[in-house]
């Protein structure tokens, strides 16, 4: 009996580090950070991380969500670099005058490759009835 107990303990000790290694990294992004990866991965770029906290210190919601025409729903905005270069969407400010221009790819395309599009803590990641 004692022998079985000992063996069980050993197996447990063996399993612990394995389980530890296999646990996927927990996301610690800032609340309301948006990952945009509709095209980036396919183009060989890093996904875009949009920090809401940074922008709402400088602009009210309505500037982007009303004047610039961003829909308030992940995945419903089809933003292309061509449009940004022409001053639409992000390009309204990211033109080298108000904020950095589009030549600084890495400042926006800074996410880990392979991330799924979405809002951290957003409705699709937490508290959704579908996940109950």
């Amino acid at each position: 009996m004692n022998n079985i107990k000992n063996q069980f303990r050993k197996i447990l000790f063996l399993l612990l580090p394995i389980v530890g290694m296999m646990t996927p990294g927990v996301l610690f992004a800032e609340y309301a950070d948006v990952v945009m990866n509709k095209r980036s991965d396919k183009m060989g770029l890093r996904p875009v991380i949009f920090p809401h906290w940074f922008h709402r210190i400088r602009f009210r919601c309505k500037v982007c969500h009303s004047e610039l025409g961003f829909e308030m729903r992940v995945g419903s905005n089809d933003v292309t670099m061509a449009e940004i270069a022409n001053g639409k969407f992000c390009g309204m400010c990211h033109n080298g005058e108000v904020a950095w221009s589009i030549e600084h790819c890495d400042l926006c395309h800074s996410g880990k490759p392979g991330l799924k599009s979405g809002i951290d803590w957003g409705w699709d990641k937490s508290l959704t009835p579908d996940s109950w």
């Binding site: 990294g25 927990v26 996301l27 610690f28 992004a29 800032e30 950070d33 990952v35 890093r46 991380i49 920090p51 906290w53 940074f54 600084h104 890495d106 400042l107 395309h109 800074s110 996410g111 880990k112 490759p113 991330l115 951290d120």
Partner: peptide, 18 residues
């Protein structure tokens, strides 16, 4: 080290920290 930004991307060192 927020598991969402790529730590190998040097540009993130320029960004403002939350």
């Amino acid at each position: 080290r927020d598991e969402i930004h790529d730590p190998t991307c040097e540009a993130i060192n320029v960004l403002q920290q939350p």
